[in-house]
Design a protein around this nucleic acid. Structure first.
Length: 517
RNA sequence: GGCCCGGUCGUCUAGUGGUUAGGAUGCCGCCCUUUCAAGGCGGAGGUCGCGGGUUCAAGUCCCGUCCGGGCUACCA
């Protein structure tokens, strides 16, 4: 049997990293077994509907490289894929009829006031709250017919069998047992005719031939309802996989309070989709053999629900940063330039930085988003104007960045005519007695010897140091670095000089000479 | 409150009765080196939540307990 898995979000907001992980696992499982990945929109709660949400899911997932085989946007054999539309087609109505007829469900005409009164009574008596029978579970056919004739609004509830131990199987936790007397009869169809999650999701999972249901473990308490529903219909069950959640620093479910949880924000910050996926997969899944850095195909090959973790995982941004650096270093300069251009010209990247407000930190200049964009834009400009030069510069910076955004700062001195000078560095290295003479000499030397290659710059500088009797290279090399880059840290000096080229090298020596004297 | 799930270095994890409890990240140090990284090597960091029990032997099995989280809607 072919594997069919589904991502079934409720369209209420943004795609966050917790949901991303669930879809990722879905995708890995589907790919591993050459099955299908389906998107189904669970929009049965009209009050929480967010029109932009579905688009967010599809577009964000497309960015990370997760595309659906079936879904509202691409169609498929089980169309429609939005539950509101499925409801309109009468799919749930016909299925609830089955349950009504075989006694697994019943109509309940309780008013909200009656339910509230029941609840208060239960609270006062320190009993479990919920609909355990009420007036309607065992009402006679006549009573129901009469209430219906009167046009009273009703819901349809699931008739939970009493006095049973429900024994369920979860792929991660194994056997889970539940006392059915603890389960209130849940609403399956609401007064407005819409199905609840409990009903719609199970009906659709069956109808769509879903073989594995991956979902967050917050669904565990309603698992028995779902388990029972399959019995009520006499359907074969899918394999249920309740994944642990990703938690924030406080150990609670990841939410907006924990900072950037929106997947698109990681994209905007310059994280590579390969790194993000690799990292996310590692939370709650172990590929075995101490593997960590994996290609997509290796993840697919190794994926198994057996490796899934029952305990919650913490989103450790430090590890994401490391992994992102690793992925960047794996790429060629040419690939990186392509990535960079796509990244910088992306609408959301721009929007993100334009609206960026840094958190105030002691002893740290806050990051200015507009400035970040300005530096990044210089990269795009250079990409079309002199791609070879850009690639050479990117190659030098590769081991020194953690995100794509870091290239903005790092590449700046390669891209602007006059890089900003670090005043402390100028103070330290340009005020030494030998420096202005050295700069003049070097201008002459560069002009006369015409160096282009790294080795030529290296021998030029080293020979100069020797002939002038410098015992260490430091006093020679450091002022030159500041002259070339404005900074004290960065790529190898000879590498960077050869990339800059003769004209820029001389121009910067001249500028430095002014500052030094 | 009730029910359910979870609990191995700070963090992500390996581990299914016998291991000096392994790896990764982060941190520290050394090497490389013109700087910063990267890379290589090394180090610190774990009473396996706690307490009992079973066993020659327990992170691994059993019981209890504590802590954390989830659910407790005509939300998903």
């Amino acid at each position: 049997m072919s594997v069919r898995v589904r991502f079934a979000p409720s369209p209420t907001g943004l795609l966050h990293v917790g949901a991303l992980r669930t879809v990722l696992f879905d995708q890995l499982l589907a790919k591993k077994h050459e099955g299908q990945l389906i998107l189904r929109i669970e929009d049965t709660d009209r009050s929480r509907y967010n029109a932009d949400s579905e688009k967010e899911f599809v577009e964000t997932l497309h960015w990370v490289g997760i595309d659906f085989d079936e879904g509202p946007h691409v169609g498929g054999p089980h169309f429609p894929y939005r539950q509101s539309e499925r409801q309109a087609e009468g799919i749930y109505a016909t299925h609830i009829e089955t349950l009504l007829n075989n006694g697994s469900a019943y109509k309940a005409f309780d008013t909200p006031e009656e339910l509230e009164a029941m609840r208060e009574q239960q609270l006062a008596a320190k009993q479990a709250t919920g609909y355990f029978g009420g007036h309607w579970r065992d009402a006679s056919a006549d009573q129901v017919a009469q209430a219906e004739a009167e046009g009273k609004p009703y819901v349809i509830r699931q008739r939970i069998p009493r006095g049973q131990t429900i024994v369920m199987q979860d792929a991660i936790r194994g056997q889970i047992e539940w006392n059915s007397d603890l389960l209130p009869d849940p609403v399956l169809i609401k007064t407005d005719g819409m199905p609840t999650y409990h009903f719609a999701a199970m009906v659709d999972d069956h109808l769509m031939g879903i073989t594995h249901v991956l979902r967050g473990d917050e669904w565990l308490p309603s698992f028995p309802l779902h388990w029972l529903l399959f019995d009520a219909f006499g359907w074969e069950r899918p394999i249920f996989v309740h994944c642990s959640v990703i938690v924030g620093k406080d150990g609670k479910k990841l939410s907006k309070r924990h900072g950037a949880t929106r997947v698109l924000d990681y994209s905007a910050q310059g994280y590579l989709k390969e790194a993000l996926k690799n990292f996310i997969a590692l939370i709650g899944w172990s590929p075995g053999e101490d593997r960590e850095v994996m290609s997509e195909s290796e993840m697919v090959e190794r994926f198994s629900v057996d490796g899934l973790q029952a305990s919650p995982g913490f989103f450790d941004i430090e590890k994401l940063k490391w992994l992102n650096g690793v992925r960047i270093r794996e790429k060629s300069a040419s690939e990186l330039v392509d990535d960079l251009v796509a990244y910088i010209t992306d609408d959301y990247t721009r929007q993100y930085w334009q609206n960026f407000v840094d958190e105030p930190m002691p002893n740290q200049v806050p990051i200015n988003g507009i400035d970040v964009l300005k530096k990044l834009d210089a990269i795009v400009a250079k990409a079309s104007q002199n791609r070879n030069y850009l690639e050479a510069a990117v190659e030098e910076l590769k081991p020194r960045v953690t995100t794509l955004a870091d290239f903005g700062d790092g590449l700046e001195f390669f891209l602007v005519e006059e890089p900003p000078m670090d005043t402390k560095a100028v103070e330290k290295w340009f005020k030494q007695a030998h420096v202005s003479g050295m700069f003049s000499d070097l201008i002459q030397l560069v002009e006369s010897t015409n160096p282009t290659k790294l080795e030529e710059y290296e021998s030029l500088v080293k020979t100069y140091a020797e002939t002038k009797g410098f015992e260490k290279l430091g006093p020679v090399v450091h002022p030159i670095r500041v002259a070339m880059t404005g900074k004290t840290a960065g790529p190898g000096l000879f590498e960077l000089m050869s990339v800059l080229g003769k004209d820029k090298v001389i121009a910067r020596f001249r500028k430095a000479l002014e500052l030094a004297s």
